[in-house]
């Protein structure tokens, strides 16, 4: 295993391992240079977040003037209470949680059902459905916002969290369906056969055998939908134009800046509050996030 990173050097390091300590150290050196380089870039990478956390703890005046110092003079925790209560981020957080959970539930259920029948059954119209799904895979989202608004308004759902959830859950999600379909398709047929012999029906086969088996896919789809919904901006923006109390965190952040242009520390506190849950989730479930995204390439 001697794929060097071109960042460190382009010189081959292919000498066969020797027992001599010096040789070993020389052998390891390029890797430590790589580590140093990557660490340097990594600092740059997380700097915006560090800056945000630091700014959220400074006083408004200090954040304006302190320049590069990251450690606040006094820890101004009141920034958080200001963001949470005065700026309404507590409310926005609740909205975001409700919208995200409801959307994830609907998307997982509907994509699993749809992916199951598309992946395992060939029926009249199945080709057509798959064709339509794939054709819309690359339709830019947001491009169809005007009819979505009009439709929601006619259904009386505009400016409501329900409307927001339905629009988010109805937004294509083709890849989730395809992931499910692909997964169900490759499950061995013996699974069903045995169940059918036992007298299991369609529903039972799905819920007792197929769905439990698809837990890894469900985790992936669920997490990716979670990520997508938590971070969604455009639809929630349009759905909360006339009702500020329905804003989600991402929309609230923009509104906050529009209304309190110089409250940098309050803004930073609001940003930390908004980003923290998703970052925490990521740190705990990192593997699923990474695998879910990698799945797009593998299939």
């Amino acid at each position: 295993m001697t794929t060097t990173t071109p960042a460190t050097s382009s010189r081959p390091v292919s000498a066969p391992p020797r027992t001599s300590l010096a040789r070993r150290a020389a052998h390891r050196a390029p890797w430590w240079i790589a580590v140093l380089f990557l660490a340097g870039v990594a600092v740059l990478w997380v700097y915006p977040f560090v800056w945000m956390v630091s700014a959220s703890l400074k006083s408004s005046m200090e954040v304006f003037t302190a320049g590069l110092t990251l450690i606040p003079e006094d820890f101004a925790w009141e920034n958080y209470s200001r963001a949470w209560t005065d700026a309404g981020f507590g409310r926005y957080m609740i909205n975001t949680v409700i919208v995200t959970l409801a959307t994830v539930a609907i998307v997982v259920v509907r994509c699993a059902l749809c992916g199951y029948v598309l992946g395992r059954y060939s029926f009249r119209g199945s080709k057509l459905i798959i064709g339509i799904l794939i054709a819309t895979l690359f339709v830019p989202t947001g491009y169809t916002i005007i009819p979505v608004v009009k439709l929601s308004m006619e259904l009386g759902l505009l400016n409501s969290l329900t409307g927001m959830v339905l629009a988010l859950a109805g937004a294509s999600n083709v890849s989730a369906i395809l992931i499910y379909a692909g997964y169900f398709r490759q499950l061995p047929k013996e699974l069903e056969e045995a169940a059918v012999v036992d007298g299991a029906g369609f529903l039972r086969v799905f819920f007792r055998i197929m769905l439990p088996l698809s837990m890894p896919v469900t985790a992936t789809v669920g997490l990716l939908t979670f990520l997508f919904t938590w971070n969604a901006f455009f639809l929630p923006l349009v759905f909360s134009f006339s009702r500020p109390e329905l804003r989600t965190l991402s929309v609230g952040m923009q509104a906050f800046v529009g209304e309190n242009a110089t409250d940098w520390s309050g803004m930073a506190a609001a940003g930390v509050v908004s980003i923290l849950p998703i970052v925490a989730l990521f740190l705990f479930l990192q593997r699923f996030f990474v695998e879910g995204i990698a799945g797009a390439v593998k299939s």
Binding site: F49, W230, N231, S250, G271, I275, V279
Partner: peptide
Amino acid sequence: LPVVTTTAI
């Protein structure tokens, strides 16, 4: 890390 953070924020 930046991938999971909210773009709008």
